[in-house]
């Protein structure tokens, strides 16, 4: 048996939005693993997107040295930092049967497993955003998620994570020890409050993925040109949105300032009048709402997360 075959290698994929701290969390995890004498990698996947766009980060953990620098396509563990990605991104793609999926959601794990058809996987849920809001006073779910990861996988101890987090924050927050304490508390609460269920089936469900078969070099247009106009509309950047502008036609004075400033041409006009928002392309930057005259207030920004909660409670 080769050394490689004997080695246990754990591969982790983080799903988040750019700006939610998944890359940092993956770095902390790798650092903590190193502290425990393990071998670890952490790397993000970069695209041209900005804050709010779906992104991925990765970890490899092992008790033996490893040397590959390839991407991770069949992870053992998936961590979903933003629960809204559950409906827009194929987060379980390549996830091994009986692998862990750890989701930031207040839903109990049984319900999450049912709702998102996760029967072949072990599902863990923790209200990481809720914990973060209470302890850190802002929605930084990565810290409680790390606590949850430590608990359900046992790959790293809570003590190491806490030691590491404290050390990392020490320099910056020397004068504000309460910040460090809040982070340690967030970790601990993530660790304590996570709930999980076992996989219900050993068989993977074949999922339909709307994937375009990429053309080979012989078929592609010469020079990388895009031979048709307006193709950027096919890129549904609406999934990047954290906040949603809500339009109230009753209050609108039709000054068209929102239409003028929208960088994504997502303000819909009909006969020269604003009639609504193109949510397929609105990235939720909020410029429209900023420009809307204070007296009118026809555009208000609402957190997507809260919208979901409102829907769920109905």
């Amino acid at each position: 048996m080769s050394a490689n075959a004997q080695r246990t290698l754990i591969e982790v994929r983080w799903h988040a939005r750019a700006g939610q701290g998944a890359k940092t969390a993956a770095n902390i995890l790798a650092q903590a693993a190193l502290r425990e004498g393990k071998y670890a990698q952490s790397f993000p996947e970069f695209g041209p997107e900005r804050r709010g766009a779906p992104m991925q980060a990765f970890n490899r953990l092992s008790d033996q040295p490893f040397y590959m620098h390839s991407s991770i396509t069949e992870p053992d563990i998936v961590i979903v930092v933003d629960p809204h990605l559950m409906d827009t991104i194929p987060v379980t793609e390549g996830l091994k049967p009986n692998g862990w999926i750890i989701i930031n959601t207040p839903l109990p794990p049984e319900e999450a497993q049912e709702r998102w058809e996760l029967k072949p996987y072990r599902v863990a849920t923790v209200d990481a955003s809720g914990i973060a809001r209470e302890t850190l006073r802002q929605d930084i779910p990565n810290v409680p998620l790390l606590g949850a990861f430590a608990r359900v996988t046992g790959l790293i101890s809570l003590e190491t994570l806490q030691k590491d987090t404290a050390q990392r924050l020490e320099k910056r927050y020397r004068d504000r020890p309460q910040v460090i304490e809040a982070n340690l508390k967030a970790l601990e609460r993530g660790y304590n409050e996570v709930k999980w269920v076992e996989a219900k089936t050993a068989e993977l469900v074949a999922r339909e993925t709307a994937r375009i078969e990429a053309k080979g070099w012989r078929e592609l247009p010469i020079g990388g040109i895009i031979p048709e106009p307006g193709t950027s509309a096919m890129y549904r950047t609406g999934s990047w949105r954290l906040e949603r502008p809500i339009f109230d036609p009753q209050k609108c004075v039709q000054c068209l300032m929102c239409w003028l400033v929208c960088p994504d041409a997502a303000i819909i006009l009909e006969n020269g009048k604003v009639v609504g928002i193109d949510y397929d392309h609105c990235k939720g930057c909020g410029l429209c709402s900023l420009q809307c005259p204070p007296k009118a207030k026809a555009l208000t920004m609402v957190l997507e997360a809260e919208l979901e909660e409102v829907k769920a409670s109905r």
Partner: peptide
């Protein structure tokens, strides 16, 4: 026949 030249090419 409009075209885009030099788009991002990942």
């Amino acid at each position: 026949t409009p075209v885009t030249m030099g788009p991002v090419d990942l």
